[in-house]
């Protein structure tokens, strides 16, 4: 597709964001690196892989969720998906006890939680969207309140927990890109790869889906099936990111908004990779800056929440929430 000469081409944006992502990764691995390379590789490398996975999962799930819902303000976490995952984890510890939960193989636990998560999110989504003509604002508000309900339920259960169990859990639930659960990296990467493969197969439909339900059906897409499948995949990606770093409400919104805004086309072939690159650059680059500027003692998630929240209000006010 041709673009006017005065417009930046999508490939340029893609290359630029990819370069930025690569640069931040190199910076993360090298700046201030002292000591043996094998240690750095294993220590920082694990963290880097974790962050890249999280960035990828959040960026892709958010962009696709926005495509399905036809809205640039909704994200899985804003309507409470990751709060749901947190609740799941809490329920798990609640019924098994910290000792019990710890004795369950973490990979198995992840698979289990993800499976429940997929089922629940499909149910929730079906319930919310079955009304058909329900207003988008209602959906958003219901999602936000549901997220709040999940969080309150989690903290209720956490209170009811044995105080020792509580400490175990709290450690796991506060969003921190610093304490990525290394046990889960393998299985999380596998899940992400599997999801990516299915997404690859579905990718030709993405642009059509962004035209809306009627247009997509008119063009021969089995809308119901594709959307259900995508939602399941999104739930898996949300599980991946939440399991690794805990809930982060606004990161997806921040990244997706930037990607839609910067990419001079709505084609997913560009928007998706640009979003992923921006996510990596923000997450990894942000971590590097925080470690240098604030010498380690500020959680990146807080900074991201701040800017993400501002973007959200800005988007609402500018009225793209139609």
């Amino acid at each position: 597709m041709q673009a006017d000469a005065k417009r930046i081409s999508p490939s340029t944006v893609l290359f630029a964001s990819a370069a930025l992502a690569l640069l931040s990764m190199i910076a993360f691995m090298t700046i201030g690196a002292k000591g043996s390379w094998s240690f750095i590789l294993s220590f920082r490398g694990t963290k880097l892989i974790g962050m890249v996975l999280v960035a990828y999962a959040i960026a892709v799930s958010t962009v696709l969720f926005q495509t399905i819902s036809g809205n640039r303000v909704l994200t899985p976490s804003i309507i409470g998906f990751d709060a749901m995952y947190t609740l799941l984890q809490t329920v798990m510890v609640f019924f098994l006890g910290a000792a019990g939960a710890a004795s369950v193989n973490p990979q198995l636990q992840f698979v289990l939680e993800t499976a429940v998560m997929v089922g629940l999110s499909l149910l929730l989504f079906r319930a919310l969207f079955s009304g058909g003509s329900r207003s988008l604002h209602l959906l958003m508000l219901v999602g936000v309140i549901l997220g709040g309900l999940f969080r309150s339920l989690s903290s209720f259960l956490q209170r009811v927990l044995d105080p020792n169990d509580f400490i175990v859990l709290q450690d796991r639930l506060f969003a921190s890109f610093n304490s990525i659960d290394a046990n889960l990296l393998g299985i999380a990467a596998t899940a992400t790869l599997a999801v990516t493969f299915v997404l690859w197969r579905l990718s030709p439909t993405f642009d059509v889906l962004s035209l809306g339900r009627e247009a997509a059906i008119g063009l021969g897409v089995d809308h119901q099936r594709v959307v259900t499948l995508l939602l399941a995949l999104i739930a898996v990606l949300v599980s991946v990111s939440t399991a690794l770093v805990g809930p982060v409400t606004f990161f997806g919104l921040l990244v997706a908004s930037l990607a839609w805004q910067l990419t001079p086309t709505a084609s997913h072939r560009f928007v998706l990779p640009v979003a992923v690159c921006i996510a990596i650059a923000t997450l990894v680059g942000g971590q590097v800056m925080l470690e240098r500027l604030f010498s380690f003692n500020t959680a990146l998630s807080i900074v991201i929440e701040f800017f993400g929240g501002l973007v959200f209000i800005f988007l609402l006010i500018r009225g793209s929430a139609r």
Partner: peptide
């Protein structure tokens, strides 16, 4: 959301 930003 405003509350969220202030909270951040």
């Amino acid at each position: 959301m405003l509350g969220g930003v202030v909270n951040a």
